[in-house]
Design a protein around this nucleic acid. Structure first.
Lengths: 127, 127
DNA sequence: TGTACATATGAACATATAGACATATGTTGG
DNA sequence: CCAACATATGTCTATATGTTCATATGTACA
C-alpha cells in the first residue's frame, strides 16, 4: 500500500498525480505577491455589495452629500455612512467638507473605468 | 412638535432636512435597475476573495487543469473545484474537457481587462 | 465490467459582514 | 457656551460564505 509513486522524483508527498511540474514551476515565479492578492480581493469585495454598487452608480453621475445619497437610494443615514466609510477606506471615493455637509464623489477616473468595465461585462453577457 | 416641515411639499415624512430635491429627482431617472445592481455586485463579489483572485491571476497567465491549479496555489482539490465553480457561474472562466482532465481559462479578453483594471488601481495607490 | 484517476458536489462549521439602533463627533449660528 | 443639524462610529444580530471532509460523477484503460 506504500512506496508506489517513487517512480517520480522524491518530491514532498502529494496526493495529486496529474501535475505538469515544469509549467507550474515557471508560472509560480510570475504569481502576484500575497499582499497584492489581499489588496485586490479587498478592492473587488468592496464593490461586491448591492448597496455599494448603487452608491457608486449614483456617484458616477454626480457628487452627493450623505443625506442626499440616503434619500436618493432610500437608505438609512447610518447604513449610507457605514458603506461610504468602506468605500473611502478602499480609495474608491473621496470627500470634501462644506460646512456641516460632506460631499462624496468617485476617487478618480480610474475608479470610474473599473466600474464601467464591470457594467460592460454584465451587459455583454445578455447577448 | 408636529406639522413643522409643511413648508415643503407633502412628501412622505423624512427625517432628513438637507435634501436637494431637484438634483435627486433628476438623477433618480438615470439609476441602473435593480437587476443590474444585483448582477454587478455578484460579479465584483466573485472577484472579491483572495483564493479566487489567485486563481484568476494564474489563469491570466496560462490555462490550467484543476489539479495543476491546486498544486500551484497550494489549495485542496475540493477548495479549488468549489471556487472554479463560483467563477464559472459568473462567466469569469471557461473550461474544456480533455480526457479525465478539465482545463480552465479566463472567459474572454473582457474579463482579463477587468482584472487588470483592478491591478492598476491598487498599483497606483502605492505611489 | 471493474479499477484508478480527475473532478464535482453535498453537508457542516467557523468566520465575516450588512444593517439597525444608539450615541458620539464635528460644524454653524445664536 | 449651547442648541441644532450633518455625519461618523460602536455594538449587536441575522445572514452569507469559504473551507474541510466525505462522497458522487465522469472518464480511460485493462
Amino acid at each position: 500500500m506504500a512506496g508506489k509513486k517513487e517512480e517520480f522524483e522524491n518530491n514532498p508527498v502529494c496526493e495529486i498525480l496529474c501535475v505538469h511540474t515544469d509549467l507550474i514551476e515557471s508560472v509560480r515565479e510570475t504569481l502576484i505577491p500575497g499582499g497584492q492578492v489581499h489588496q485586490l480581493a479587498e478592492l473587488f469585495k468592496t464593490l461586491g455589495d448591492p448597496t455599494r454598487v448603487r452608491i457608486m452608480d449614483a456617484l458616477a453621475k454626480n457628487e452627493f452629500c450623505v443625506c442626499d445619497l440616503a434619500e436618493l437610494l432610500e437608505l438609512s443615514q447610518s447604513a449610507t455612512s457605514h458603506q461610504l466609510r468602506v468605500l473611502r477606506s478602499n480609495d474608491l471615493v473621496k470627500y470634501r467638507r462644506e460646512g456641516k455637509m460632506v460631499y462624496y464623489s468617485l476617487d478618480d477616473e480610474h475608479v470610474l473605468a473599473l466600474y464601467r468595465e464591470g457594467l460592460e461585462h454584465i451587459s455583454e453577457g445578455r447577448g
